[in-house]
């Protein structure tokens, strides 16, 4: 599980690819934890290259949102493929985590 990141001030953009399932959920979690620094105020997860998210993958995303929220930082998600956007909609998590069509819109929403 590899993620690539780029930082712009207190904004961190993390891109993941492949499947986020129970097999690599822990790796994904570890990679995110290693990438996020305490000074990051906003994390945008760009999931354009992700083909599948299982419930274990969702849990990592929610845990990340929760951890960020505890220090008043926030998580945004962008560029979801249609089946993955459905996963967020069915589980109701699109009501908890803001989802944007693409990275530009996600960045614009930060203001």
């Amino acid at each position: 599980m590899e993620i690539s990141t780029e930082r712009e001030g207190t904004l961190l953009v993390a891109r993941a690819g492949g499947r986020l399932d129970s097999i690599n959920a822990r790796e994904f979690d570890d990679a995110l934890k290693a990438a996020i620094s305490d000074s990051d105020q906003v994390l945008i997860m760009d999931l354009e290259k992700v083909s599948y998210v299982s419930s274990a993958g969702l849990r990592v995303i929610l845990l990340t949102a929760k951890t960020l929220q505890q220090r008043s930082a926030k998580l945004l998600i962008c560029s979801l493929a249609e089946p993955i956007r459905e996963v967020f909609e069915i589980s109701g998590f699109d009501k908890i985590i803001p989802i944007h069509a693409n990275l530009v819109e996600a960045k614009a929403s930060i203001g």
Binding site: S55, L58, R59, L62, L63, K66, I90, S91
Partner: peptide
Amino acid sequence: DNDAAMFVT
């Protein structure tokens, strides 16, 4: 007390 953020649909 669900610190592990487990959830169930």
